[in-house]
């Protein structure tokens, strides 16, 4: 996790109380929000969990037609 170590260092302080740590997290991520998308992305849900197939609907694959249901 070398890429992320730096990002987490700002709030990696054992001497902080949980409340202080929380405030620091809010400040850090709040400021980062100025240059990052405002999104919540569903990764795993019962609706999206399905047998992986070569072509699935809405996969946005150049080889798969959009209407493909992959059986």
């Amino acid at each position: 996790m070398n890429n992320n170590k730096k990002a987490n260092d700002a709030v990696d302080n054992d001497e902080l109380t949980p409340e202080q740590a929380r405030r620091q997290f809010i400040k850090k991520y709040g400021k980062l929000a100025a240059v990052t998308p405002l999104a919540v992305t569903a990764l795993m849900t019962p609706k999206t969990s399905a047998a992986p197939k070569s072509c699935r609907p809405n996969q946005q694959n150049k080889h798969c037609p959009p209407e493909s249901n992959g059986f």
């Binding site: 997290f25 999104a39 992305t41 569903a42 795993m44 849900t45 019962p46």
Partner: peptide
């Protein structure tokens, strides 16, 4: 809900 979501920085800050 047994669901997993990805949050960007604004979502993390807002959630906290």
């Amino acid at each position: 809900r047994n669901t997993l979501h990805k949050l960007e920085p604004a979502g993390i800050a807002l959630l906290l």
